[in-house]
Design a binder for these strands. Structure first.
Lengths: 217, 217
DNA sequence: GGACGTTTGTCAATCGTTTGACAAAAATTT
DNA sequence: AAATTTTTGTCAAACGATTGACAAACGTCC
């Protein structure tokens, strides 16, 4: 597949949203869509949509538009969702369980191969068809497996304690819910942060802005 | 407080991160910091930090830098975290429970005043010191209360069913974990989305990119 | 208190992203 | 089959964000 040299993060972060909208269209039986139509539905611009898709080559046809099913598949391929990156998840609290039980990881390019927790009451129990391991065995597990991805569903302090073990164990890909900053500490890791606090603070700002226009107090 | 006319979202979304780093500095007893120091710790640039802060007025002092405690407080004020926006949360699953039990909402500008779920086994139970209400009573609750904010921890389908009830009930601020798109459907609402799927797909892309440089398959 | 080093606040330059415009290509209509 | 309409792919312009540079202000040292 053709691919522009430098795809910007802005484009990449829009791909999952395109994917979602195309899935919807597909499910509701729509087989073709123009950039203008799609832009209207998504609240973006036709120009941007065409620009984005053309980073990876021309998938459309003049006078016709884009084939919904084809485009959906193409974006899935670009994102690499057919892959199956083995991942481990640490922290079997509510958040960890939400990920384990309510996300379709295989359709997102991952498969969970191990769960860890520190709580003796949780270690040894079954969650999502797997037995939760003791986080004390994490180092061994990292050494003996080829897993490179971790979903980190623990508080900041736990994350800071685990960081070195994970890095030394060869983990390079982090889906990080903690407030621990991996990217600044390890130069060669790839981190995707989900900071619920940050998101909520941003909402707070925007609400205040909405209620008291043009003045910060 | 002074404030530039148009603060860009890029700046706003960096504020919570500044806030977090400043809190750390404060906790470890650091009382002053220069933009250069802070930039180094955060992996950003001194120039950007100064530019960002100066959107809201000059909080630093030449030859000295920034007072950590003061700056921390100022950013808290800018974000409006001293506010206490009443919010309701819908969807008492793992995700909802994670928010209820593990986030310090009062320090993020919110307070939970009502919980809703659709599951008869959950309705009536106590979670986080509150009794879970039946989502069937949502419409009444919206009418009788002045809550304008909802934390939506339900799947897409439930969100689409609730959307109109919420909007008609006067809800205008959404912290949205579902894949339902409020912003494109209601013009005058403020939505802060947390899309776990999108985040994970992005990680998948970046992993593939890392493993097979410069070629998408 | 004067000289020197530090660091901010700010402006301009650079860089990246989004938007607008239009030729070329395909579909559709007549 | 020619004319018209639709729509892409792409290039350039406009816009927005980040970086770099430097004067002015302050702190520190002697």
């Amino acid at each position: 597949m053709y691919k522009k040299d430098n795809i910007s993060m802005s484009v990449i972060r829009r791909l999952p949203r395109y994917y979602r909208f195309l899935q919807e269209l597909k499910n509701s039986g729509v087989t073709r869509i123009s950039s203008r139509d799609l832009a209207e539905r998504m609240g973006s611009s036709a120009s941007q949509i065409r620009q984005d898709f053309n980073c990876f080559g021309g998938f459309g046809q003049q006078g016709y538009g884009y084939d919904v099913g084809f485009l959906y598949d193409v974006i899935g391929k670009i994102l690499g969702l057919q892959e199956c990156h083995p991942a481990m998840l640490i922290g079997i609290g509510n958040l960890g369980r939400a990920v384990i039980n309510h996300m379709s990881l295989p359709s997102l390019g991952f498969s969970l191969v191990a769960l860890f927790d520190i709580d003796p009451d949780v270690v040894g129990t079954e969650v999502g068809g797997m037995i939760v391991r003791d986080v004390a065995t994490l180092e061994d597990f990292c050494r003996d497996s080829d897993v490179e991805t971790v979903f980190l569903c623990v508080p900041r302090e736990s994350a800071s304690q685990l960081a070195d073990v994970l890095y030394k164990g060869g983990i390079r890909y982090f889906w990080n819910f903690s407030h621990y900053d991996f990217a600044t500490r390890y130069p060669d890791v790839i981190v995707e942060n989900v900071h619920l606090n940050d998101s909520l603070m941003t909402l707070c700002y925007r609400i205040n802005e909405d209620k008291h226009p043009s003045h910060v107090e």
